[in-house]
């Protein structure tokens, strides 16, 4: 079972190591982890996709919550949300097959961002299913390299996974 966790963390040195270390130490599997700063530069958001049964996910969440740098954690899997990842894919493209590749790129609303004599770089965004499908469609041409960002996610509608925190020493 894959779950998507949206985690607000203090933008302090070592916070990524702490989170990643927790996963390896307790034997949890990270599917993907994407991190970047939020609208508040002192706070970063991590989107973590984790695979495991219910008990493991519960432990992951509780253990993450114990980290002092973790301000707030939400499992947004079951909330309506927009989930996206970005892929760059370098694919073999002899001049004879370029037209076919460009058709596939169009269907997936992806873009060609670089071209060399025998290869192309394609940029695509979307949910994991779409990215996987594009990758599969391009496989017959020969994939040279794939880079994926991992999922980032945001709740639909006006709701936010806000900064409000209930920790000690806030508002003191």
């Amino acid at each position: 079972m894959k779950r998507t966790l949206s985690v607000l963390v203090e933008n302090r040195p070592g916070v990524l190591t702490r989170v990643a270390g927790l996963f390896s130490r307790r034997g949890y599997n990270i599917d993907s982890l994407a991190v970047g700063r939020t609208e508040n530069p002192s706070i970063s958001r991590m989107t973590i996709v984790v695979d495991g049964d219910e008990q493991i996910i519960e432990q992951v969440c509780k253990q993450l919550n114990k980290l002092i740098d973790v301000i707030k954690l939400s499992d947004i899997t079951d909330d309506p949300h927009v989930g996206r990842e970005l892929m760059l894919i370098k694919v073999n493209a002899e001049p004879a097959v370029r037209g076919e590749i460009m058709q596939i790129v169009d269907i997936f609303r992806a873009r060609i961002v670089d071209i060399a004599r025998n290869s192309l770089i394609i940029e695509a965004t979307g949910d994991a299913d779409k990215i996987d499908a594009l990758e599969n469609s391009l496989r017959p041409f020969g994939i040279r390299e794939v880079v994926r960002t991992g999922k980032i996610a945001m709740l639909r509608g006006a709701r936010t996974k806000g900064m409000e925190a209930s920790g000690d020493g806030t508002g003191v």
Binding site: L67, I68, G167, D168, G169
Partner: peptide, 11 residues
């Protein structure tokens, strides 16, 4: 000094 621990709940 002032404590600022938004991610820490002890109580």
């Amino acid at each position: 000094p002032r404590l600022r621990l938004p991610g820490y709940r002890s109580r």
